[in-house]
Design a protein around this nucleic acid. Sequence first.
DNA 1: GCCATGTGCAAGTGTCTACTTGCACATTGT
DNA 2: ACAATGTGCAAGTAGACACTTGCACATGGC
Lengths: 112, 112
Amino acid sequence: MTTAVLDHADELFAALAEPNRRLLLEHLGTHGVATATALAAELPVTRQAVAQHLAVLESVDLVTSARAGRERRYTVHVEPLTAAASWMNHVATQWDARLAAIKALAETPPTS
Amino acid sequence: MTTAVLDHADELFAALAEPNRRLLLEHLGTHGVATATALAAELPVTRQAVAQHLAVLESVDLVTSARAGRERRYTVHVEPLTAAASWMNHVATQWDARLAAIKALAETPPTS
DNA sequence: GCCATGTGCAAGTGTCTACTTGCACATTGT
DNA sequence: ACAATGTGCAAGTAGACACTTGCACATGGC
């Protein structure tokens, strides 16, 4: 039953809230793999900033990294995204049903 | 055609990143409607903090409010949630396909 | 060995954010 | 009118965050 998808909801959403981090994800998503230095060339910030962003993304499992010689290569990991998406759909559906019920209740003539 | 889903991605994700805000959303999602004062009774923070959180949620259209006499009543609005969810699913799917292609390429024997 | 390239650690700075307290204003019931 | 309840505005504070600079360490090619 796909246990505990969003115990790190705070960190996941916070990670996605940063535009530069979403840019990094997008670049990795379309190019597959890259190093921090290469990615830094695409953004108007230093390599260190990129490295810190990548660390955040890695801490919430949105990317994974591995050393290859003297460089470290990063790759996207889409599972947290799809997991969060399905969770959002789930609660949205539930709330919608609930609100419809409440609205229906509010429209019944007061019997008390 | 449900225009422009994620031009406010920063603010939307940032709004969802706050645990207290998610609690507020959950409460509103299951109870339908409530005032800031009532909601403050459920959280370990002051009414003002709740009011500020609700303002944030309202600024990204996750809740709507209306005055009724001397109180202001808040309700959830699930569309941004479902919109964000479908967007996340979309990009995740695209990236997955792209990464599969790249992986396939990487596994082809080097012809050069 | 030596130099270039890529990485990692640490500390510093400015800005944003969550939360608080204090008070003034609006509405309802007696 | 008066008190109670609910709201709104404003300023202050502590902590988090994005980003920087500076330097030490590791790896690869000459």
